[in-house]
């Protein structure tokens, strides 16, 4: 079995979209789930959220940011290339509420995960308010897609180049002050999700976050992705990836995400060096 890259698109600087041919996975995918990929024989296994899927065409879409060796290597692949392994869909699908006002908060690449979830939530008859944010306008992705599945869309940029100058949490605070909201779903960088949880807690609004710890197998056999939720150890890959934001120990998550910082830097450095070498040839 080979998994071919059908399409590659640069959505923003260092943010890439890949359409992958994996019919069995596409056929079973639900919003909120993820896949694990391995590029080649010496590759590591990394989790990527399923940003979209087309069951009929057998395609799954993933979006990722270049942050280390594996994502840089992935970004350098072209359509027609293939990945050695794709496994999924993994994790639990998002729980879709009924008759609810739902605020989706998406940051960075997390915006692409908001899209399929908001789409399903909207289909089920919920009212969708979306807030998407990025550092700057050129990093803002999938605005139109998210708008197409939202009743109302707010945009923020840290530098004020588009939408409101500030953070997603600023808009969220205003919304929570103005109207009643049944559920907040936040997907993005850990610091953003932690900030969202901090904003919603005093309002007593149920808040769900999609966690992204270090994973190896993604099927529950190792516990690399363990997180503390309500004082209990949970495995994100099988118990999550979505959890009650007010119960999550974000500090522990951040610490564990940084566990291999030195190794990641070394691996990236070696890769960049080899790339340079190739170019010189």
């Amino acid at each position: 079995m080979t998994y071919t890259i059908l399409e590659r698109e640069e959505l923003a600087p260092e943010i890439y979209l890949l359409k992958l041919y994996a019919p069995e996975v596409a056929n079973k995918s639900e919003p909120g789930q993820f896949i694990i990929i391995r590029i080649d024989e010496s590759g590591e296994r990394i989790p990527l959220t399923i940003a979209d899927y087309n069951r009929g065409a057998g395609i799954i879409t993933v979006v990722f940011m270049e942050i280390g060796k594996t994502t840089k290597q992935l970004a350098a692949l072209k359509s027609g290339d293939s990945l050695s392994d794709i496994v999924g869909p993994l994790g639990n699908p998002a729980h879709v509420p009924k008759n609810s006002v739902v605020v989706f908060v998406g940051g960075g690449v997390g915006i692409t995960t908001v899209y399929p979830e908001a789409r399903e939530f909207k289909k089920a008859g919920n009212t969708i308010i979306s807030i998407i944010g990025a550092r700057s306008e050129n990093l803002l992705i999938w605005e139109d897609r998210v708008r197409s599945v939202s009743d109302k869309l707010y945009i923020t940029t840290d530098d004020g180049t588009k939408g409101r100058h500030g953070f997603v949490t600023d808009v969220l605070t205003d919304i929570l002050r103005e109207r009643s909201v049944d559920l907040v779903v936040a997907i993005g960088p850990v610091v953003m999700m932690r900030a969202v949880a901090g904003v919603t807690k005093p309002f007593g609004v149920k808040t769900i976050v999609s966690l992204n710890p270090v994973m190896v197998d993604g099927t529950g056999m190792c516990g690399s992705c363990r997180v503390l939720v309500g004082g209990e150890t949970k495995f994100t890959c099988v118990d999550g990836p979505e959890f009650d934001a007010h119960q999550v120990d974000f500090t522990l998550l951040l610490t564990r995400l940084a566990a291999y910082r030195d190794e990641e830097a070394a691996s990236l450095e070696k890769f960049m060096h080899e790339q340079d070498g190739d170019e010189k040839c």
Partner: peptide, 22 residues
Amino acid sequence: NEFLTRVNLMKAYQFPDYDTPI
């Protein structure tokens, strides 16, 4: 399981020739 999977399946003992760290 994690320790041995990293070492045996992912060959972390050959890091950084193999990408999985330990």
